[in-house]
Structures are given as structure tokens and as C-alpha cells.
Design a protein around this nucleic acid. Structure first.
Lengths: 105, 105
DNA sequence: TGTAATACTATACGACGCGAGGTATTATGT
DNA sequence: ACATAATACCTCGCGTCGTATAGTATTACA
């Protein structure tokens, strides 16, 4: 997929990935992979930004002798997810405009 | 609208705006405004990138004593517009995933 | 014994959106 | 006549962000 388009969806995809149950870096990448491939160097800065923005909290837990950081969505994160559904209407309006112009060929 | 999401649509929106008939900077901004507000300092670099990429050609013409740059879409630009419709399926798959997680609340 | 998978981190580069500011002409309102 | 808005283009510089590259350390498997 075009690199540009997916960038706007990264934050929201990551939030969606931890919505149902807390998750951690490596798992998030695997869960999202069918929809969009992202590397660790892309994900971890996003997680840090989302934490700084108050959209999620971090909770380190030991797993098999190693530390694992579990990410938990906050109320603010939930609001962001819900707001996304609203924003989508504007995105679809743009899509309709573009396709209309294409069909006008 | 969230600043992030629309950025991925900028290039394609600009191409769509010159698809039906050649247009120029100021007009493109006005035409797109109902869908997305962008400033001149955002548009002109995009036009230059699209030209460098071969998606459009530029043709300066005098209008009321002033120079006006008309932008004309190329075959490659048309292909990019058509490819967008295909890519959109992947975008919708992401949207469905996000909404599904939201509804699982 | 070595290679892949798991799990997180830091650095540095390039691309990009955009605010701020600049130039010049024409049209509109007072 | 004067001021303001609209038209039409451009440049510079800042901050954000995606990502390649590289590093550390443990566990599982062949």
C-alpha cells in the first residue's frame, strides 16, 4: 500500500490492537501484520507518543525471566477510537470526491 | 479532522482536482476546501513533487497580465488515481478491523 | 552448535506539513 | 483617494514522523 496513506492509520491501528485486551510490542506487530506491516522502530516511538498523550498506560511484567511491557488503553484512548469513526465520514467524503473525478474521465 | 489521516490523501486529492480539467494553485485550494483545508505552503511543494514524479506537467500562461501556472495530469497521474481505488480496499480492511475492535467493547 | 524467534532500545536520516513572511496585480468598498 | 480583500505565486525554517540500521539479551529448536 502507498506509504503515505497508511501513516495516518498507524496510531489508531495500534490503539485498536490493545483495545480488547492488553498487549505488548511484539504481539501488536504480529496482530497488525495482516493489515499493515510495521517495524519495531516504527511501533515503539508510536507507543511512547500514545503514552505521553495519555492514550495508554504501560505496565512492565516479568514473562519467562524477561521483562515485557503491557500496554493498556485509557479512557482517552477509547475516546480517540470512537472519534475515529466520526472522522471517517470526512475521509469517505474525500474518497467519494476522488472517485467521482476519476469516473468523470 | 485529525491532521494525520488527511495527509495520506493530499497527493491524490490534488491529482483529482486537476483530473477533469487543467487547474492552477489558487483554484485547486478553493476546489479542495470543502473536503480539506490546505495552505499554499503545503500545496506548492506537493505540485512540485508530483511534477518531478511525472504525475503532472506544468504550463505557464498569461491571465489578466499575470502569469498563471496550469497543471495538467499525465497518463502516469491517471494510473495513480486508478491505483488509489484499488488501495482503498486495503484501507477499508483496516477501517473494518479498527471498528470491529471498537465494537468489541 | 547455531539459528530463529522473542522483546525492547537508541541513533540518525530523509520526507513532509505548515506557519510565517514576501512580492505584485486587480477588484471592491468607503 | 485610500484601504482592504482577493488573486496568484514563491521561499525558508521548524517540528513531527516513519524507518533503516544496529545493539542487547533470553529462549526454543534443529
Amino acid at each position: 500500500m502507498d506509504a503515505q496513506i497508511k501513516r495516518g492509520l498507524l496510531d489508531i491501528l495500534v490503539l485498536a490492537a490493545i483495545k480488547t485486551e492488553d498487549s505488548y510490542g511484539y504481539k501488536i506487530i504480529k496482530d497488525i501484520k495482516p493489515y499493515l506491516t510495521l517495524s519495531e522502530s516504527t511501533l515503539y516511538p508510536i507507543l511512547r507518543r500514545l503514552e505521553e498523550g495519555g492514550f495508554l498506560t504501560v505496565n512492565s511484567q516479568e514473562h519467562n525471566g524477561r521483562l515485557r511491557k503491557y500496554y493498556h488503553i485509557t479512557d482517552k484512548g477509547m475516546e480517540k477510537l470512537n472519534a475515529f469513526a466520526e472522522e471517517w465520514k470526512e475521509v469517505m467524503a474525500i474518497y467519494d470526491y476522488v472517485v467521482r473525478e476519476v469516473d468523470a474521465a
